[in-house]
C-alpha cells in the first residue's frame, strides 16, 4: 500500500443519491487503480447510469465523496472535473464540423490555434477519422460518430474516461470491432476508464474488472473469470452467464429438498452414455446446436438440467447419465460453497 494517492484512478466512498423520492444509489463504494478499465454492469434501473453521472458531475451525490486521481471533486460541476464522457447517443453538435466538435474542449480551455489544431489532428488520427475532419456529424455513419465522440473525450486528456453504453447504438458486427478498438486504445493510452453497460458479454470481454450492480448496490466487483467462476451472490450467478438454478441441497450428486439454492453452470454437467460414480440417469428432451457447442436439455428425476457439450452429443429421447462436476451453493443469496 505504498504511494496510494498516485496510483488512484477513481474512488467512490459512501455514495448516495435520491431522485424523485426514490433511493437510486445507497452507500456505494468503489475504487479503481490508474489505467484500469472497469464496467458497471446491471439491468436498466440498477443505478449504473446514475453512478456514472455522479462521477461526471451531472449529479451531485446526496452523501459520499467522489475522488478522481486522488482529488476530491464531489462538489465540482462537470466543467471543472478531470473526466470526459462519451454519451450513449454521442451528443455531437450538429452545427459544427467533426474537427470543430473535437476542438471545442480545447477552445474552451483557451488553447492557441496551432496547438489546438495539432491536438485535434492527433485525436482524430487516434480514431482514424482524419478524412472526415470537415464533415458534419449528420453526414457520417453511427460508428464514425462514435469515434468522433471518443476523440472529443480523449483530446481533453482526462484523468477518467466515462463511456455510457458506448456500443448500444451500433449494429452487432461493428460492435465487436469497436469494442476491441476501444480496449486497444485504452491500453495504449493507459487511461482510467469506466464503462456503463447492460450487456454482460461486452462487460466481461472489455474490462479488467466488472462491478455487477443491482438495485442501487454493487453485488460484486471482481475480474471477469472470478465473476463467472465464483459469483459472490445468487444474483450475480444468475445474471452472468447461464445457470441451472435449484432450490434445495446437493447430496451425492442429487438435488434433494432443502433451504439452500444450488447453481450449476451448464458446462459443469458431464454427459455420458455409461453409468459412472455420482452420475444419474435422465432423458434428453431437447438438443439445440449453438455453433461451437450444443445445448442439451435433460430431465432427471430431481429436475430439468441444461447442459453445454461439444464432445458427446446425444439424440432427443436418448437416455444419458448426467454428472454434476461443480456447483455453487447459496444461503440467503450469498455464496457459501
Amino acid at each position: 500500500m505504498k504511494n496510494v494517492e498516485a496510483n488512484m484512478g477513481l474512488e467512490l466512498r459512501g455514495l448516495k443519491k435520491i431522485l424523485g423520492g426514490r433511493v437510486i444509489i445507497e452507500n456505494l463504494d468503489l475504487s479503481m487503480a490508474k489505467g484500469e478499465m472497469i464496467s458497471l454492469l446491471g439491468p436498466s434501473g440498477c443505478g449504473k447510469t446514475t453512478t456514472l453521472r455522479m462521477i461526471a458531475g451531472f449529479l451531485i451525490p446526496d452523501a459520499g465523496t467522489v475522488k478522481v486521481a486522488g482529488k476530491d471533486v464531489t462538489n465540482l460541476g462537470p466543467e471543472k472535473r478531470p473526466s470526459a464522457m462519451v454519451f450513449q447517443n454521442y451528443a455531437l453538435w450538429p452545427h459544427m464540423t467533426v474537427s470543430r466538435n473535437v476542438a471545442y474542449p480545447l477552445k474552451i480551455k483557451g488553447l492557441g490555434k496551432i496547438e489546438t489544431a495539432e491536438k485535434v489532428e492527433a485525436a482524430l488520427g487516434l480514431v482514424n477519422l482524419l478524412h472526415h475532419q470537415d464533415s458534419r456529424p449528420g453526414r457520417i455513419s453511427g460508428g464514425e460518430q462514435q469515434r468522433v465522440a471518443l476523440a472529443r473525450a480523449l483530446v481533453q486528456e482526462p484523468d477518467v474516461l466515462l463511456l455510457d453504453e458506448p456500443l448500444s447504438n451500433l449494429d452487432a458486427k461493428l460492435r465487436e470491432k469497436v469494442r476491441e478498438d476501444i480496449r486497444e486504445l485504452q491500453r495504449r493510452l493507459g487511461i482510467t476508464t469506466v464503462i456503463v453497460t447492460h450487456d454482460q458479454e461486452e462487460a466481461l470481454s472489455i474490462s479488467d474488472r466488472v462491478a455487477v450492480m443491482n438495485a442501487g448496490k454493487i453485488e460484486q466487483f471482481s475480474n471477469p473469470q472470478d465473476l463467472y467462476r465464483h459469483p459472490a451472490t445468487e444474483y450475480v450467478a444468475t445474471f452472468i452467464g447461464a445457470l441451472n438454478r435449484f432450490e434445495g441441497n446437493l447430496v451425492e450428486g442429487r438435488i434433494v429438498s432443502g433451504s439452500d439454492v444450488i447453481g450449476i453452470r451448464p458446462e459443469d454437467l458431464i454427459l455420458s452414455s455409461q453409468q459412472n460414480d455420482d452420475a444419474l440417469p435422465g432423458t434428453v428432451e431437447l438438443v439445440i446446436p449453438r455453433g461451437h457447442f450444443f445445448e442439451v436439455v435433460i430431465r432427471r428425476e430431481d429436475g430439468i438440467f441444461k447442459a453445454f457439450t461439444n464432445e458427446f452429443i446425444p439424440a432427443v429421447g436418448e437416455n444419458v447419465f448426467v454428472k454434476i462436476k461443480k456447483s455453487l451453493r447459496y444461503q440467503n443469496g450469498k455464496l457459501v460453497g
Binding site: 460541476g77 454519451f87 453538435w93 474542449p105 480551455k109
Partner: peptide
C-alpha cells in the same frame, strides 16, 4: 435542443453561459 448536447458541452469544460451561447442559442 437536446439536453445531452448541452451536457456534452458542460463536460467539455464550458460554463453554463458558454453552453447557452455556443450550443443552445446556435441550435
Amino acid at each position: 435542443v437536446p439536453r445531452y448536447l448541452e451536457e456534452a458541452a458542460r463536460d467539455a469544460g464550458a460554463s453554463k453561459f458558454t453552453v447557452f451561447r455556443t450550443i443552445t442559442l446556435r441550435m
